[in-house]
Design a protein around this nucleic acid. Structure first.
Length: 575
RNA sequence: GCGCUGGUAGCUCAGUUGGAUAGAGCAUCUGGCUACGAACCAGGAGGUCGGGGGUUCGAAUCCCUCCCAGCGCGCCA
């Protein structure tokens, strides 16, 4: 974003004044104040600097504020042990809100190519609740980076290879009559998976056949390959329908499946061998790096080829690093993968670096996330121990939203109600996910997850509809508003300031891709609007005030809309 | 055993990298709808920040130690 970053501006102004006061390498430590009585922003760096230079903190603070003098845009006040509380003058906010635009983008000018590895369902299973986090978190990162004009490569590293496909293909072959359309057998995927795995467990003959199919698949047997391709196609279509319903920006074109790296696997091993990184251990080809220790301080291998000649997923992941580094030429690669994979990914990155697959300037980074748990702290499963299907969660969400809509607003057409239920229900799920700290486990409870009150997506969406309603009521076209915004009431000033802080939220988000920072920002924005809306009449005011407040409401709506869009959450005109 | 996470209000979670009297939502209590939309607003109550040491002007945050929970630690992905 290249809009005004107030925090950054203040950082420069205060640091410069500190320097003039005799501080070397000053750090102003500007923060948004927690309480209004401490101003809009505060500088916390005076005390540390004073300490370091042997001044009494308040004396230094005085010196700095004297240098700053009677500023046109800010007022400064010394408080407590040596804080400088900063207040923005209304005129300053008015002037900047007039230039505000949500479509401004990146600052530092450097466009990066960022690969984001996310979602990555296993095609041998139906998508379940466990896929929600990676999918939603990764999609947000993709949207935010794109909004900052970076080039984003979405990489959906789907599992489409390996032993678990043996029984599926054997079963598919068994139930398919020659000449019959295969996809008709796969209309109910869930039933298909269950039948296949039931046979695999209960029928020894079938299990043996299934194992043969694994071998056949790996040796590119034509019939087997044909079945596999069909199966993968149907399975991917199923995933895509979930993505569409969830409003995820992934498409079929973003799929780069595990099998896509099959031909690279021997090459990877060869390179490792040529670089003398390989050691044979118990028949397996391993890379031993000093930094990895297993149980009892034994060296921990990264196994790139198993003793049976097969390749483990570490080999595939290595091939993927090479592709992303050398072919895509990524500046940064983000892996949105569960926290339990941490050691694995550390090994992947370390081996890839040792082998030269990753250049020294390239950043490969794991963005871990925790588990979704039940209220009792155990992993989230159905009563009989099965995974909860993602599509069921989404349907439950829209059903609940629809029910609520029917209670609250029956004037909409059936079709509109359904549309709004989708937007509200799906928004609630995504927001519930994104508003929590990425790295920790969290409790999934239907009622809190699908709550439509308080700090939730519907609250933000509701704020948006209230604004849209204002424009309907007053028959005003927001794009025709050209009048300036005049800020009188505290609620107006705080709301306008919030709007201007969007850029700070985005930059804070990009530090560590913690979406809850964006959520918190949007929630505070919506709250500020609600407060303004209650306190400041709009449509009943004189022309000038009315126009100003409508203008302020309009930039708020734009900010809510584009902020929610970064999270992949939509808005509606009515709800 | 070793490593990585985490332990904050009754519940679910924040806490901008060391700042002021630790904040939200839900639940609970008190007010506010012949509506610029009450999916809301204004306010109250609720805390030994797992325990104990330490570092300093200042600690939920950094260090040490102990307790508890989750995850990971050679050929599943």
């Amino acid at each position: 974003m290249n809009g005004l970053n107030i925090k950054q501006l203040l950082d420069e102004i205060i640091a410069q004044a500190m320097q003039q006061a005799g501080i070397e390498h000053p750090i102003a430590q500007i923060r948004q104040s927690q309480k209004l009585e401490f101003g809009h922003y505060q500088a916390n760096g005076i005390m540390a600097a004073a300490k370091k230079n042997g001044y009494p903190p308040r004396v230094l603070a005085q010196k700095v504020t004297d240098i700053l003098g009677d500023h046109a845009e800010f007022s400064f006040e010394i408080a407590g042990p040596g804080f400088i509380n900063i207040r923005l003058k209304a005129a300053f906010i008015e002037q900047n809100i007039a230039q505000f635009s949500t479509t401004n983008s990146t600052s530092d000018g450097k466009q990066k190519t960022v690969v984001i590895d996310y979602s990555a369902p296993n095609l041998a299973k139906e998508m379940h609740i466990g896929h929600l986090r990676s999918t939603v978190i990764g999609d947000t990162a993709a949207r935010v980076l794109e909004s900052c004009n970076h080039k984003v490569v979405r990489a959906n590293h789907v599992g489409d290879w390996g032993a678990q496909f043996g029984s599926l293909l054997a079963y598919l072959d068994q139930i398919t009559v020659v000449g019959e359309e295969i996809s008709s057998k796969l209309t109910d995927l869930e039933k298909f998976y269950q039948s296949a795995s039931k046979l695999f467990r209960g029928d020894k003959e079938f299990a043996a056949t299934a194992r043969q199919y694994v071998v056949k698949l790996q040796s590119n047997d034509p019939q087997c390959y044909y079945l596999w391709e069909k199966f993968i196609g149907v399975s991917l279509d199923h995933c895509q329908s979930v993505y569409d319903k969830l409003n995820i920006s992934l498409t079929i074109a973003d799929v780069k499946a595990e099998s896509a790296y099959n031909e690279d696997l021997p090459v990877i091993v060869k390179i490792l061998q040529d670089k003398t990184l390989l050691t044979e251990s118990d028949g397996a080809q391993c890379v031993f790096l000093d930094e990895f220790k297993g149980k009892n301080e034994r060296p921990l291998p990264a196994i790139v080829r198993k003793s049976d000649g097969g390749y483990p997923y570490l080999a595939t992941d290595l091939a993927a690093t090479r592709h992303r580094s050398e072919i895509i030429n990524a500046d940064e690669v983000l892996y949105v993968v569960g926290a339990s994979q941490q050691l694995h990914l550390r090994q992947v990155f370390a081996v890839a670096r040792a082998a030269g697959f990753i250049g020294p300037e390239q950043i490969f980074r794991h963005l871990p996330f925790g588990l979704i748990l039940k209220a009792d702290g155990k992993p989230f499963k159905t009563r009989d121990g099965a995974d909860v299907k993602l599509i069921d969660v989404l349907n439950e969400a829209t059903d609940r939203a629809l029910k609520l809509i029917k209670e609250k607003n029956s004037s909409m057409t059936e079709q509109e109600q359904l549309k709004v239920a989708e937007v509200v229900g799906i928004g609630a799920i995504k927001y519930a996910e994104l508003s929590k700290n990425r790295t920790t486990d969290y409790i999934f409870d239907w009622d809190t997850m699908l709550s439509f009150e308080g700090n939730t997506a519907p609250y933000l969406q509701y704020a948006y509809t209230r604004i849209r309603s204002l424009f309907r009521k007053s028959s005003t076209d927001p794009s025709r508003l050209t009048n300036p915004i005049s800020l009188q009431e505290d609620q107006e000033i705080l709301l306008a300031l919030r709007v201007l802080q969007l850029i700070e939220a985005i930059e804070a988000y990009l530090e560590d891709y913690q979406a809850n920072i964006l959520c918190n920002y949007l929630y505070e924005l919506a709250r500020s609007f609600m407060s303004f809306y209650e306190h400041c009449p709009i449509l009943t005011e004189s022309h000038q005030i009315k126009a100003s407040r409508l203008q302020l409401a309009n930039v708020t709506a734009q900010t809510l809309h584009s902020g929610l869009a970064l999270l992949g959450i939509q808005t509606v005109e009515r709800m």
